[in-house]
Amino acid sequence: MLWLAALWVVGFGMFWQANPVRVMPTLTEVGGAILPLWRAGVGNAILVSMWTLLEAILISSALSLGLSYLYVLAVFRFPLISATKLRFLGFTGLITLFYLATKDGHILKVAVLTFAITVFLLTDMLKVVREIPQERYNLARTLGMNRLRVVWEVVVRGTLSTAIESIRANAAIGWMMLTMVEGLSRSDGGVGVLLLNLNRSRMLENVFAVQLMILFMGVGQDYLIGIIKDVVCPYARLGKAKI
């Protein structure tokens, strides 16, 4: 299958390079911009952004998973479901609240990213917890488990692989929001700030070179979370269809 993927990548590269509609720089122009950018310190900017994102992913994962597990208690259901609706909110106005509530730029960025990832991850996780079949709870109860143990075995352990998969899917939102979020406080730097600066000066080949790097970082992040899932939940790989 790897050769087929490689074929698609090569095909896409050729199409990009040869595309007669010149709305964006060619592949060689973008490729040629990578090395100078690297020498100018884009690596540092990526590290700054990665650190910000990692913090946001870890906090939002802990928050979303913890909150979703509370769904088993009827008293929390309404506020939890309501919280998922916050994903429809725009950031205008909301950002001011974050500005007022946070002490420095870094915390502000982590807070906004955490909020954005959490509302989506919580939506996914609540669906997972809601869809646990009653039979699974019954199994735990027939074995004589107390309520806390039932929640641990069925809700926490039983949904772990799906939880990691949800984190994997929703962590990507962080990269998408990076430019907007890092634009809120530029003093820390980061790849989002770099993109904004390059875009303002219309250096499109540089912009797309950075975008390409972000894409690779995102794919790497996806792959890494996949490996974590395989290590933590080896059973999740079993029984998957091999086409």
Binding site: E135, R136, N138, L139, R141, T142, L143, G144, M145, E153, R157, G158, L160, S161, C233, Y235
Partner: peptide, 25 residues
Amino acid sequence: AGMVGVVPQNSLLFEDRTVYANLMT
């Protein structure tokens, strides 16, 4: 609950652990 064993039609087990670990639990 817990005094009578139940074997449902789809023979549920904890999918996140081996048969032995299921039995040990």
